[in-house]
């Protein structure tokens, strides 16, 4: 078998394609500028807003964020790649973040994680074929008084038992929190979709299913 090689002549993204960040998103990013001494400091807020808008932060989105912040695209990737929260490929409509630190493990976190994997038929860093769920693990979620715990999008589920997993994942409102939300880091109102962080970001990346990170 021949070596598979990367075609370096093919651009990572199509620079001539229409922009992925709307003017409303750019304006929202700029609205963070007065808070900081430098534009670059608005990078984490910008990444949060873009990820909420597109469902992930694509290569093209990174280049456009760089444009708004007056920095090099590689600076955006450099920072973004350090943090586990940002994705540069599409993810499912809901992201399950299962805790696997010491307290959760002592109280059955591994069994819960196995039950999730079995129920969804995916492993960590994968997305279900129907695009509904992505699964990741995270170190301590600071919910150790309710171990084992996991997040579904913004909602922290407490004292989860492996037996409860199918019912929990079948519930339509399992990512809804019952307190007033702040929209500060959300997508701007105009482009906001129902739910948070779904995968309609098919603009410039292929939507993959079951792809490892």
């Amino acid at each position: 078998m021949a070596w598979q090689t990367i075609n370096r002549n093919e651009p990572v993204f199509d620079a001539d394609a229409p922009p992925v960040l709307s003017e409303a998103v750019r304006e929202k990013i700029r609205s963070f500028f007065p808070r900081y001494d430098t534009k670059r400091a608005a990078l984490l807020p910008a990444l949060h807003v873009v990820q909420d808008t597109l469902g992930h932060v694509s290569w093209k989105a990174m280049a456009e964020i760089a444009e708004v912040l007056d920095i090099h695209p590689s600076d955006v990737f450099d920072t973004m790649s350090f943090y586990t929260h940002f994705w540069n490929h599409p993810k499912g409509e809901k992201t399950i973040t299962a805790c696997r630190s010491i307290t959760c493990e002592l109280l059955g976190g591994r069994e819960v994680l196995d039950a999730i994997k079995k129920h969804l038929g995916i492993d960590e860093h994968e997305t279900t074929p129907d695009g509904k769920y992505s699964l990741v693990t995270e170190e301590c979620l600071a919910g150790c008084d309710h171990s084992p715990c996991m997040l579904i999008n913004e909602k922290l589920h407490k004292r989860v038992r492996a037996a409860d997993v199918p019912a929990l994942l079948a519930a339509a409102d399992n990512d809804k929190i019952d307190i007033p939300r702040s929209t500060l880091f959300d997508a701007p109102q105009e482009s906001q979709r129902a739910g948070s962080g779904s995968a309609d970001g098919k603009t410039d990346d292929q939507v993959g299913t079951n792809v490892a990170e």
């Binding site: 600071a142 997040l151 929190i177 307190i179 702040s182 500060l184």
Partner: peptide
């Protein structure tokens, strides 16, 4: 604030407002 504090972020931000 760490990002996994979602509910706590909304509570803090609303209190700040």
């Amino acid at each position: 604030m760490r990002v996994e504090f979602h509910e706590q972020f909304h509570i803090m931000q609303n209190a700040i407002d």
